[in-house]
């Protein structure tokens, strides 16, 4: 019979809490960097010249069809061989997750750009805005409102994906679980607590996002 002993888990709770905060931080940062990459790729795919369209499509399809773990290994073990050893493990992971997120966000933003009415753009052009101004003041703000629900879902997936960072010893929540498990062998307790922490964080984020969505909903 398994004897429960919660003490070792709660004695090391700061490890888990710090891990959780780091995970959310990494997910937020990757969402931000990924949004920039994704926005560029989406604009290239919709409005770019042929080679740009192809490049953007190739990036999106390639990244979406290979495992995140492989991208992490490539950045962490592969890039230094190319002379790019600027990153420690945490920043390597942020880079990998951003590139990964960018491919998913490119599709989210593409759908958003395509959902912006032609009339809106024509009206903006008619009052004399340049193409750049149209993108900045019309397409992008409207697109963000359309894309908000998908952006929220992407953020939650990214947060869950931060658990894979434990593979290269980034001290996030899953790595905290591994360490406590190795040191104390309270395996059931630690994974129950960690599972609950992920669950609670996911639902808290989802609730916050629903509130934001209500506020910025597109009026029809």
């Amino acid at each position: 019979m398994y004897q429960f002993n919660w003490r070792p888990v709660f004695d090391n709770f700061d490890l888990l809490l710090k891990g959780l905060v780091l995970g959310i931080g990494i997910a937020l940062l990757s969402l931000a960097i990924g949004s920039i990459i994704g926005l560029a790729a989406a604009f290239c795919r919709v409005h770019g010249t042929r080679p740009l369209k192809f490049l953007a499509a190739a990036y999106v399809e390639l990244v979406r069809n290979i495992p995140l773990l492989l991208i992490i290994y490539f950045v962490y073990f592969g890039l230094p061989l190319l002379g790019l050893s600027l990153f420690d493990n945490t920043w390597s992971f942020v880079l990998a997750l951003s590139v990964y997120a960018g491919a998913y966000l490119a599709e989210v933003f593409r759908a958003g750009i395509e959902a912006v009415g032609k009339g809106q753009i024509e009206a903006a052009r008619a009052i004399g805005l340049t193409r750049l101004q149209v993108a900045r003041h019309v397409t992008i703000p409207l697109m963000f409102r359309v894309a908000l629900p998908s952006l929220g879902n992407t953020f939650i997936s990214l947060f869950k994906d931060t658990s894979v960072a434990s593979a290269i010893a980034v001290p996030e929540l899953t790595y905290g679980a591994i360490r406590i498990n190795v040191n104390t062998w309270r395996v059931i307790e630690v994974y129950l607590v960690v599972g609950l922490m992920y669950l609670a964080a996911c639902y808290a984020i989802a609730a916050l996002l629903r509130q934001a969505e209500r506020r910025y909903r597109v009026m029809h």
């Binding site: 869950k160 994906d161 899953t174 498990n181 994974y191 599972g195 992920y198 669950l199 996911c202």
Partner: peptide, 11 residues
Amino acid sequence: RGIPQLVLIFA
């Protein structure tokens, strides 16, 4: 759906 796959595998 609210728990990472890796955590499920380890658990």
